[in-house]
Simulated assay, not measured.
Amino acid sequence: LEFYTKGVNSFLHSNTSGCCLEPLVLCYSNRAATRMSLGRMREALGDCSMAAALDPNFLKVQMRAANCHLALGEVEDALQYFSKCLESGSDVCLDRRIIIEAADGLQKAQKVAECTNRCTELLQQRTSNAATIALGIIAEVLPISSYSEKLLEMKGEALITLRKYEEVIQLCKQTLDFAEKNFVVVDAENDLADGDGSKYKNSFVRLWRWRLMSKSNFHLGRLEMALNLLEKEELLRSTKYSMIQGSLIPLTVSVRELLHCKNAGNKAFQLGRHIEAVEHYTAAISSSVESHPFAAICFCNRAAAHQALGLIADAIADCSLALALDGNYTKAVHRRATLHETIR
């Protein structure tokens, strides 16, 4: 990559007369291929555009542009480039490999388009069976369009439906770096300033990830993390994404209320106001039916308040309820064991 860049720069700083255009075209084309291998498809497309502008008949670079668009999930653009390469066969003596690659690329682009539409229909059903089928289809075409934001978002939606929340978070984090490289926003209005003054570039590629990660963290009981993401999303309401944000407002309100109840319970407990603590934890429990791990924490905390009030049977019952909601909650196991010891 470095050497191709040096080659391009050396030509740009000299006179690009007709006799030296071909090496410059090749430098752009080869640098595009290198960037493609690094997953930097948008930069590769820029090189393809420069090469094509210098030599419109250089079909190899048109093929590379087509493959970039296909990898990014920009199917219509990919179809256009592949078709253009095939149509040029009547005017230019094409390398047979280019014809085969263009025909294959055309079929792949059509497959991605069809599968994307099919998955959209499946996910609208919001059932586990439909989500499982959609995941299978996405697994077939994602190797073709590896950087497709649409396919990745649909995969995340399917995983949410199947309650595979850790996988959702992993997917969102692992794909963000390439998304930011490949989907560049030049409009400063689409950048989101964080509280410390730093900015999140390309907020639109983060938006669906924040949405899915906030939902996943909520269901995993990590409400503080969920709220942090939801509040970042709120900052985008004044942008063109405001229509998308509306559906998350109820979740934001719910998370804030749940955290308020739990924190109020913790504070009351620390101050020795145990009856008040029980009331706050009970309020949190009654509103947290969709987040089992969080409800388990509140049950365990209420058990501590009941224990402080001398209500051992109620405390044991709360620990058992916490474990029913989250079988891996060791704090509830230990607390219940300690409570059983006190009544022996």
Rank of each mutant, 00 (worst) to 15 (best):
E2T: 13
K108Q: 05
Q80D: 14
H274S: 02
D191A: 05
L72Q: 09
R256I: 07
S216G: 08
V333L: 04
I138L: 09
E279V: 03
I137K: 10
G46A: 04
C48K: 04
C68G: 01
E149K: 05
A134C: 12
S146H: 09
L59E: 13
L325I: 06
K173P: 03
S10V: 10
E2H: 01
T161P: 02
M154Y: 04
K108C: 03
A131P: 02
K201W: 02
Q170W: 15
R206S: 08
R42G: 00
R273I: 01
R96E: 15
K111E: 10
E290P: 00
Y147E: 14
C20R: 06
K108R: 04
G246E: 07
R35E: 15
Q124I: 05
S242T: 12
E87A: 05
L86K: 13
L70K: 00
C300K: 08
S128Q: 15
I343G: 01
D55Y: 05
R35T: 14
M154V: 13
N266F: 02
N182H: 00
K215S: 12
R126K: 08
I285M: 00
L251I: 07
F204I: 14
E189L: 07
L229H: 12
G310L: 01
R126D: 11
K6F: 08
S10T: 12
R31W: 13
A313V: 11
A332K: 04
S10D: 08
